[in-house]
């Protein structure tokens, strides 16, 4: 497992990670958080490419730098030489690997991700095709540890399905797949565990299933000028603000009653989202967010 012990990462102007202390067990782990939460910095530290300012990261008891060269990594914007073809590029990366694989495995990986190996230079690739090539590079050689930064961004439906199928193979006791995504519905389906970061701090870590089970509420999005008195009812568990909307959290079973309560006062929820992903609600709840006084 990965173990982070008081990991802090400071850059010149800000602190990207603040005293993180948690473990990552084998299986599929999702790391979520808003932009700037520190997800990419965390990943770079897990790969051993950059070092924390303070604290240590261990992998199975050893400093994480020792696993460098023995894992797959997908950058959010995968880097390539633009003048190479996919076959040349993957072959180049393979040649520079700590543990290169046979040439036929390179061809097989390109075929799996449906990437044109020859003829077309990478500078002419679409964003989705670049992402596929990055994924091919990350999964080349079937590494035990794979870290993917926003892997679903830019992928078409077929690519997403292919990636999801690959995730399944990492749900095992001795393999790690760590990824970040803003698509919380997908996280609920794919991840065994979830780590939530916000402004460099750990907000939550645990099994996705447990987290989802905690969420039994529905959020209503109401006009921003709604009277607070109207919301002071036992039906409403929590009031918040999201953008121009006022949010009201209600027990799922009490949803129809609350709607009736609103209707009696001529209020119609502005948003059509009567039921959102349970994980998204808990995610919002777990983040440091603005809350209105009840």
């Amino acid at each position: 497992m990965f173990e982070l012990v008081e990991v802090t990462k400071k850059y010149r102007n800000h602190e990207a990670l603040k005293q993180l202390r948690f473990v990552i067990e084998p299986g599929v782990t999702a790391v979520v958080g808003p932009n700037g939460a520190g997800k990419t910095t965390l990943f770079n530290i897990l790969t051993g490419r950059i070092f924390p300012t303070c604290g240590t990261v261990f992998y199975n008891g050893q400093p994480v730098e020792k696993i460098r060269g023995n894992l797959g990594y997908l950058f959010e914007d995968p880097p390539f030489y633009p003048y190479l073809t996919a076959e040349n590029q993957l072959g180049y990366f393979n040649a520079l690997r700590e543990y290169p694989v046979e040439a036929h495995e390179v061809e097989r990986e390109l075929e799996k991700w449906d990437i044109p190996p020859k003829g077309k230079k990478i500078k002419d690739f679409s964003q989705g095709m670049r992402k596929r090539l990055g994924l091919a590079n990350a999964f080349l050689g079937n590494p035990q540890i794979v870290i993917l930064d926003e892997p679903f961004n830019g992928l078409d439906l077929e690519g997403q399905q292919l990636l999801e199928d690959t995730f399944v193979t990492y749900r095992s006791k001795d393999r790690f797949l760590i990824f970040s995504s803003h698509q919380l519905e997908r996280i609920t389906l794919l991840a065994d565990r979830i780590v939530i970061l916000d402004q460099g701090r750990l907000v939550y870590t645990g099994e996705t299933k447990e987290l989802a089970e905690q969420a039994t509420k529905v959020i209503f999005y109401l006009p921003g000028d709604i009277s607070m008195d109207l919301l002071r009812t036992p039906l409403v568990l929590e009031i918040g603000k999201r953008g121009v909307w006022v949010t009201a959290a209600v027990q799922k079973e009490k949803g129809p009653l609350f709607l009736q309560h609103l209707a009696e006062h001529g209020i119609v929820p502005q948003s059509s989202r009567l039921l959102i992903s349970e994980l998204e609600y808990v995610f919002e709840e777990k983040q440091v967010s603005r809350r209105l006084p009840y």
Binding site: R49, F80, F93
Partner: peptide, 22 residues
Amino acid sequence: ADDLRTGVNKQIAVLQKHLMPV
């Protein structure tokens, strides 16, 4: 320059524990 401009150097640093030979 291409390594710096594209970020390939960072990808290489992940693929290869020992940068010196590279």
